[in-house]
Amino acid sequence: MFTLGIWLGLLVALSPDSSTGLYYVAVEQALLYQAPANGAYLALSRREPVRLLTRQGYWWRVRTQDGAEGYVEAHALSNVWLRVSKRQQRLYLYRGTTLVRSFPVDLGPNPYADKVQRGSLANPDDWRTPEGVFYVAAKNARSRYYKALVLNYPTADHALRGLQEGRISPAEYRAIVEAEAAFRMPPMNTALGGWIEIHGQGTGQQVNWTQGCVALRNEDIDALWPLVVVGTPVLIEP
């Protein structure tokens, strides 16, 4: 299966000229047509990667990873993705390989370590910001922290590590993996923690106060809001 993690890997590995045509489906389902608005023959799922071949106004001709070619409505595709550098304490907004903007962020109390389990007042060091490849699983316009982009943490990768380290049960592992495969919100109540978000009301002063989330200034989350959709890839690096 061609995942968004591989899609991000291609963007990083390829030269700017060769990767500018990489997009992903940004709606729940997009139809692939033999000709603009005529002869729909294939349904593309949210997050499915495609390569842009040509633009014809509102219709874009694309090729899927399986080699199918056809036309898709332009609004159904996006190449927007986010990268968070914990070391630099910044969030970077990209279109393909082009950096559009960057923003200062606040992180969890220990920004130098990866998240492995749920944090608490007794163990605030575990309120860490997780690392890996995620996607925006939901958007909350009425968050306690102004606005929030909810990430799909824990992912299947985090679940595998948690299972191997004895932090979660086989049943919890399967539930997380199945949720990711079905594009559902993963269980948030395991020992791995959950509800990791990119949200507002951050200070922008490099003060790490969140419970593992990535906090921006309200005006910065406003700038991201119309560009980010459910399914937008997010890479969080050390």
Results as ranks from 00 to 15, higher is better:
residue 163 L to G: 10
residue 36 P to W: 10
residue 228 V to W: 05
residue 163 L to P: 08
residue 174 R to V: 10
residue 65 Q to N: 08
residue 182 A to M: 11
residue 236 I to S: 11
residue 166 G to S: 09
residue 13 A to N: 13
residue 181 A to S: 13
residue 183 F to S: 13
residue 125 D to R: 12
residue 146 Y to H: 11
residue 132 G to L: 08
residue 46 R to M: 14
residue 155 T to P: 03
residue 238 P to T: 02
residue 150 V to R: 07
residue 37 A to T: 01
residue 85 S to Q: 12
residue 11 L to V: 04
residue 106 D to Q: 07
residue 52 L to F: 01
residue 208 N to V: 02
residue 107 L to T: 12
residue 112 Y to A: 15
residue 218 N to R: 02
residue 91 L to G: 11
residue 97 T to S: 15
residue 191 A to F: 02
residue 156 A to I: 00
residue 238 P to G: 10
residue 159 A to R: 07
residue 206 Q to F: 12
residue 135 Y to K: 00
residue 141 A to N: 14
residue 205 Q to S: 10
residue 41 Y to R: 11
residue 109 P to R: 14
residue 140 N to Q: 09
residue 62 V to K: 02
residue 58 Y to M: 01
residue 108 G to E: 10
residue 232 T to R: 03
residue 217 R to D: 02
residue 164 Q to H: 08
residue 90 R to Y: 13
residue 134 F to T: 03
residue 233 P to V: 08
residue 214 V to G: 04
residue 154 P to C: 13
residue 188 M to P: 00
residue 60 W to M: 05
residue 80 V to R: 12
residue 113 A to K: 14
residue 180 E to F: 06
residue 126 D to I: 00
residue 172 E to Y: 05
residue 59 W to Q: 09
residue 117 Q to F: 06
residue 200 G to S: 09
residue 10 L to W: 09
residue 53 L to R: 11
residue 126 D to V: 00
residue 148 A to V: 06
residue 159 A to N: 05
residue 73 E to R: 15
residue 35 A to H: 12
residue 151 L to T: 03
residue 145 Y to I: 01
residue 143 S to F: 08
residue 34 Q to P: 01
residue 172 E to K: 08
residue 22 L to E: 01
residue 80 V to C: 13
residue 220 D to E: 10
residue 29 Q to W: 10
residue 200 G to K: 02
residue 161 R to M: 06
residue 119 G to S: 10
residue 210 T to P: 04
residue 169 S to Y: 04
residue 183 F to W: 14
residue 208 N to I: 02
residue 177 V to Q: 05
residue 217 R to T: 03
residue 74 A to C: 03
residue 195 W to T: 09
residue 148 A to L: 05
residue 4 L to D: 05
residue 69 E to G: 03
residue 142 R to D: 14
residue 30 A to F: 02
residue 109 P to I: 09
residue 36 P to M: 06
residue 37 A to E: 14
residue 223 A to V: 11
residue 236 I to G: 10
residue 176 I to W: 11
residue 188 M to A: 15
residue 54 T to H: 10
residue 21 G to R: 02
residue 34 Q to W: 05
residue 32 L to F: 10
residue 174 R to M: 12
residue 34 Q to R: 15
residue 145 Y to M: 09
residue 175 A to T: 08
residue 49 P to Q: 07
